[in-house]
Amino acid sequence: MLSNRINKACRLRMIVSRHTSTTPDAKSIQTPNPSKISSDMIGPPDPVSNLRTIIFRRPSNETNLEEKYRKLRTEVQDWNHKFWTQHNSRFFKERETYLKENLPDGKTNLTADEMSVFYKAFLDKNWKTHLNYNIEWYKKNLMLLGLAIQVKIKKLFRTKQTK
C-alpha cells in the first residue's frame, strides 16, 4: 500500500519534471488529466505551504456521492493550502523583519536561543488563528470521513450485487 503511494508520487514527480523547464515555474507544469490517470497522484511539495498537491482520480463510472466526496476533498485541500501559504508567508516576512531589527553588526545570523524569542512571540500572536484552523480542520475532516464511509459502504453493496 505504502509502496504504491510512493510509486505514484515518483510517477507524478517524473511527469512534472518532464514538463518543467530548468527553472521551475508553476505555469509551465502540465497537470495530468484526472479522468485519464489510474489512481490519485501526489505532487512535489509547494515551496511556500510545504504541502503536496494531490490530483484526485476521476473514474469514468463515478457516482454522484463519489463526485461529491472527490470535490470536497479538493476543496479541503485548497483551503488547507491557502491557509498554510498565507501563514508561512507571514512567518517568513516577520522573521526577516525580526532579523533585520535584531541582527548585530558583523553577524550573519542569530543563535537558536536568540531566535526562540521571535518564535514564541509569533506563536503567541497567532494562537487564536491556529486554534480556529484546528477546529475548522477537524470539522472538515469529520465531513470527509462521513462521506468516505458512505462511499465505501455503497461500493461494498454495489460489488456484492454484481456478483
Score class of each variant (00 low, 15 high):
105 D>T: 11
49 S>N: 06
49 S>V: 03
153 I>G: 09
94 E>L: 00
45 P>T: 05
158 R>V: 08
70 R>H: 06
38 S>C: 09
149 I>S: 05
124 D>H: 08
152 K>D: 12
22 T>G: 02
155 K>M: 10
155 K>L: 15
149 I>L: 10
33 N>V: 02
133 Y>F: 15
142 L>Q: 12
139 K>M: 13
67 E>T: 10
91 F>Q: 11
31 T>D: 01
129 T>K: 15
41 M>Q: 05
63 T>F: 15
44 P>K: 01
110 L>T: 01
106 G>V: 00
163 K>R: 09
68 K>Y: 13
31 T>V: 02
51 L>C: 05
103 L>D: 03
111 T>A: 13
32 P>D: 00
19 H>N: 15
91 F>W: 13
120 K>C: 01
154 K>Y: 03
117 V>W: 00
6 I>E: 07
128 K>Y: 12
60 S>H: 13
104 P>T: 07
143 M>H: 06
127 W>H: 15
98 Y>W: 14
78 D>F: 09
110 L>C: 02
1 M>V: 03
151 V>N: 06
141 N>T: 05
124 D>C: 07
157 F>K: 15
97 T>F: 02
114 E>P: 14
125 K>R: 05
140 K>E: 12
90 R>H: 12
145 L>Q: 06
141 N>I: 07
15 I>R: 10
68 K>E: 15
15 I>C: 09
149 I>W: 08
138 Y>P: 06
50 N>G: 09
75 E>P: 04
65 L>D: 11
128 K>H: 08
152 K>T: 08
14 M>Q: 07
77 Q>I: 05
93 K>W: 09
51 L>D: 04
142 L>W: 11
73 R>F: 04
68 K>M: 11
126 N>R: 08
83 F>K: 02
146 G>A: 15
127 W>M: 11
55 I>V: 06
86 Q>D: 06
58 R>P: 03
40 D>Q: 08
86 Q>K: 10
70 R>E: 03
104 P>C: 10
153 I>T: 12
29 I>S: 12
59 P>Q: 14
159 T>W: 13
161 Q>M: 10
44 P>N: 06
39 S>F: 03
33 N>I: 00
26 A>L: 07
62 E>P: 07
118 F>Y: 07
